[in-house]
Computed example of a mutant assay.
Amino acid sequence: MRRRLFWWEAGGFAATAVLGTLLHFTYDWSGRWVVAAAFSAVNESTWEHMKLLFVPLFLVTVVQVCFLGRTYANFLAVRASSALVGLALIPTLFYTYTGILGYHLMWADIAVFLLADLGMFVLDFRLLSTGRRGALWQQIAGLLVLWGLAFLFVWFTFRPPVLGLFLDPTTMRYGLPQ
């Protein structure tokens, strides 16, 4: 059973890495189609890079809950917990290394994304293996967190708060490019 879970998690990690990378470009590839903006990065802000981790994770979660949800009664609570940790890793790692260096490096930005992805799925695997967080209220809370995050990533694409996390450092603007 752990071996099967390991391969599902490894597949989730790989799918998130590949889809997240592609979603970095789909908004521009689509001719800046407003529908693509809902799930693609629309600028170079940290928030939009967090969206690149979450959107593929959300899609992977939909698939995995169909195949693993009955086997792991704690699936939704665990996935919500690991998603929050993965999302927190992106700004934590990015702002830490850029704060130390004073500038950013493309290869380090990619490494931050991959480390957040890896950390998310390693935590997911460990928490699913323990069987904890299986109460019904925890599953409902996990589902609400995942859908709440999905809503926020779409909402803040079109109505970003004026906070540093949402600022595109290349254009010094917020949200969709003008």
Results as ranks from 00 to 15, higher is better:
R2K: 06
R4M: 10
L5R: 04
L5C: 03
W7N: 08
A10E: 08
G11W: 02
F13W: 05
A14S: 15
A15Y: 01
V18A: 07
L22R: 15
F25A: 00
S30F: 04
R32N: 05
A38M: 07
V42C: 14
T46Y: 13
T46H: 12
W47A: 11
M50H: 09
L53A: 12
F54W: 01
P56G: 04
V63M: 13
V65N: 03
G69D: 01
R70I: 08
R70A: 12
A73I: 04
A73W: 14
L76E: 13
A77C: 14
A80L: 07
G86A: 15
A88S: 11
G99A: 12
Y103P: 00
H104K: 02
L105V: 00
V112D: 14
V112Q: 15
L114V: 13
D117V: 10
D117G: 03
L118G: 12
M120R: 13
F121G: 12
F121H: 15
L123I: 10
D124A: 07
R126L: 13
R126E: 10
T130L: 02
R132D: 10
A135K: 11
Q139I: 15
V145M: 09
L146S: 10
G148V: 05
G148P: 06
A150C: 11
L152C: 06
F153S: 02
T157Q: 04
F158Y: 06
P160D: 09
P160L: 03
V162T: 15
P169W: 10
P169F: 12
T171F: 11
T171M: 13
